[in-house]
Nucleic acid binder design. Structure first.
Length: 229
DNA sequence: GCCCAGGAGCCCG
DNA sequence: CGGGCTCATGGG
């Protein structure tokens, strides 16, 4: 994993697409969906919770389906930790139906809500990153990518999120083999691309945007138009 | 009809 | 540790 290539690619993406301002909020924010260059984001626990719910709901699922589910959550007044913690999965499932795997995800959301009641956002934010990560991973339904998304976007911990897109793109560009275990790939990136909250958020958002342009449908382009030389 | 989406848990060799 | 299976809706 070359530091200069990783850096160059970041700037190419930024030049092509501009700041992405992830994570998109629409339920708990009356302001803009995206938060370009806004270091004070997220601003409150309700926004942090929305990010956590989205991180679970988007597991192997297109964002559009997640939006529909989150709208139902809001409509039912369920953007609320206490309610989510107590609501039986059979009752929550139909609400998030559009996000798919709704029986599983209803359980996962309940697990996470009960965890967050025991570990308030402020506590998780102050905790050392690796300790907060370990705690999140103890929740059934929170795997590595979901944990890192929550850490990065909801808890302001500078961790690099590896997802199917970033792995696919880095592999195509020859940055990595593509078969590395999650932790190993994340560690390689973070060793070469210094931890920085805003840059990590942007890089992930940019990779997803780039993937939607060139890495959605097979066959992928022979040569990535933004490949740094 | 088919393929895929911003994965995770479980089981099995 | 790695691979295969299950979970499910909605859009292209």
């Amino acid at each position: 994993m070359s530091r200069s290539l990783l850096e160059a690619f970041y700037h190419r993406l930024m030049g092509a697409y501009g700041p992405q301002g992830w994570w998109p909020l629409f339920l708990s924010s009356s302001g803009p969906l995206y938060h370009k260059g806004d270091a004070s984001f997220p601003q409150n626990d309700q926004q942090r919770l929305e990010i956590c719910l989205g991180a679970i709901l988007t597991q192997n699922t297109s964002w559009n389906n997640v939006v529909m589910a989150l709208e139902q959550v809001g409509r039912q007044g369920l953007l609320d930790l206490n309610k989510l913690a107590e609501l039986p999965p059979e009752a929550l499932g139909p609400v998030i139906r559009s996000a798919g795997y709704f029986n599983q995800k209803a359980r996962y959301l309940g697990n996470l809500a009960r965890f967050l009641l025991q570990h308030p956002f402020e506590q998780l934010r102050q905790m050392p990153t690796d300790q907060a990560r370990k705690a999140l991973l103890s929740v059934s339904g929170v795997g590595q990518e979901t944990a890192d998304s929550i850490l990065l976007y909801a808890l302001d911990h500078p961790v690099f999120v590896i997802d199917a897109y970033s792995r696919r793109i880095f592999k195509a560009l020859g940055f990595c083999a593509g078969t590395e275990p999650y932790d190993q790939l994340a560690a390689q990136v973070m060793a070469q691309f210094p931890p920085d909250l805003t840059r990590y958020r942007e890089y992930h958002g940019l990779l997803v945007e780039h993937a939607k342009h060139y890495y959605q449908k097979k066959p992928y382009p022979e040569l990535d138009p933004l490949a740094p030389s």
